[in-house]
Simulated scan of single mutants.
Amino acid sequence: MAVIIGIIIVLSAIFGGFILEGGHLGPLFQPYELLMIGGGALGAFVISNDRESRNATFKALSTIFQSARQSRELYLELLSLLFEIFSKVRKEGLMSIEYDMDHPYESPLFEKYRLVTADHHLVEFISDYFRLMVSGNMDPFQIENLMDNEIEVHHQDGEIAIHAINKLADGLPAFGIVAAVMGIVHTMGSVGMPPAELGSLIGAALVGTFLGILLSYGVFSPLANLLDRKLQESTKVYQCIKVAMIASMNGYAPTLAVEFGRKLVSSSRRPNFRELEEHLRPAKKAGNR
């Protein structure tokens, strides 16, 4: 919704100001200029990106109207899940979670946390590293290094679409200039026409430059910034898991381990200490039985 509101504000301010100063919207309607700009930019996008990049870009653009998944409720569920896993490992040993990690969607540990299981990437990240802990003899430093590398790959994958959209935004003003030049060429070929008609042709040519700049700085560049912000937030979830797991591997109690993870959450989404304690209370009671 915020994206739509922002675009409406941009268009209303620009076109509204134009009307208020006495302009008319009719001359701004230049479909052929838009065809040259849009078609040129689309062609350049296809040339400069492989299938993986194009698919990633279209997938990312489909999420711009969705609210962020990284809510306070998700972090509460995530930290509670980690607490239960840590507690079970501390009480019954690593082998006790082997089935849970091999079959997370059938596990009693995971099934209570629907917001976590709704994101298969999160479930895979958690189960993979606990599975490594169960089946291997890796120390915390090795696990941490591997996690850092995977988080970096996740971030790089997310940046593919952002870079593609940024490049598209950078190219739109240039294609606007190309469309304007084509309009000027057409105008120069019509110098015998009356001044009023020549003025109309020149105005139509200048619309090309206007549209290129508007689409670049008013639409596509802000969309790239929005996707970058979403990527930063999605990366923090994995960092939160990493810090909590490494703390647990280093011997910290489950309560302290999840507290380490809580500190990695953005302040706007971070549950406070009392909220987390309240959320962990049922799991602590069940563990004391």
Rank of each mutant, 00 (worst) to 15 (best):
T117H: 10
R90W: 02
K285R: 04
L172P: 14
I4R: 15
L20I: 04
I126P: 11
D128T: 14
K263V: 12
E144C: 02
L215R: 10
G212Y: 07
V181G: 14
E233V: 13
G22W: 15
L122I: 04
V207A: 07
L146W: 10
R262M: 06
S216K: 14
S62Y: 13
S135C: 03
D102L: 10
A283S: 14
F18C: 03
I14F: 08
R51K: 09
D119K: 15
L94M: 08
G218T: 10
L198T: 01
Q70C: 01
L94Q: 09
E52Q: 07
F210N: 08
F86P: 00
L264P: 02
A56F: 01
Y99M: 11
D170A: 01
G176T: 08
N272Q: 11
R274H: 04
T117A: 05
E277V: 05
G208D: 05
L76I: 03
E111W: 04
S87C: 10
R131G: 03
A169H: 05
V153I: 00
F45K: 09
A179T: 10
G136V: 00
F260R: 03
Y113S: 00
G199K: 08
K242G: 11
R281G: 00
G43P: 06
G17V: 03
A244L: 05
Q239G: 02
H121D: 12
L172K: 14
D139N: 13
A2Y: 00
E150A: 14
R51V: 06
L74K: 01
E124V: 12
A283W: 07
G43E: 01
I4E: 11
H163V: 12
S62Q: 15
G183C: 06
Y75L: 08
R69N: 08
V219Y: 00
I19H: 00
I143K: 09
G23Q: 08
G171N: 13
E259Y: 02
A60S: 15
A257Y: 10
L82Y: 10
H154I: 01
A179I: 03
P140M: 06
N225Q: 13
R90E: 02
V153P: 00
P27H: 12
L82C: 12
I85A: 09
N149V: 11
D119Q: 11
I9K: 06
R69P: 00
A253Q: 11
I202S: 13
N137A: 13
L201I: 02
P271R: 12
K236H: 13
E275P: 00
F273I: 03
Q142R: 11
P254T: 02
E73H: 09
L61E: 12
E77F: 11
Q66M: 14
A118H: 12
V265E: 06
L115Q: 15
K59F: 03
L276Q: 04
L226C: 13
A44K: 12
E92D: 13
R114G: 09
